[in-house]
Amino acid sequence: MNLAEKIKQKYSSMVLEATAIAGGDPTIVAKKETIKNLMTALRDDVDFQFNVLMDLFGVDYLFWEEKEKRFEVVYNIYSISKKHRLFVKVPVKETDAALDSVTDVWPAANWFEREVWDMFGIRFNGHPNLKRILMYEEFKGHPLRKDYPYNKRQPLIGPMH
């Protein structure tokens, strides 16, 4: 039994599915409502000890008909002591694009969550400083959403002429 299946068995109330991504790393799909509890458990569980948040990012599946919910937030977590890695995917609906922040679990999540807010417009409840990190404050919209026109321009200071 691989890591993803073990986790699904142990935390069956918070995990929807155990799969693998293309690279072969174990992956679980988790429920949005309990994500913070699940992450705290994975960090503190002696069997798993996921003590590093390596990456956190958003995905927009706007044109994917097989996807029920538009967004996914993906956590890439790693255990230095156990030397194993796990991807946690959380489907997020467009109409309710908000989930609990994991900054209390791993402080490294702070800037990653700000980036996901900036680029995809997904809010993180309980984040200490949820403002744009890459774009400027006056920027309207979220540029990595698939319905943001790639050639739309929002100059911060007007053209010279």
């Binding site: 890459l134 540029p143 050639n151």
Partner: peptide, 15 residues
């Protein structure tokens, strides 16, 4: 860089 983030030539802002 034909995208949301980049100035399309600095002659938009200075001569």
């Amino acid at each position: 860089y034909d995208n949301y983030a980049t100035v399309m030539g600095i002659d938009h802002i200075i001569p």
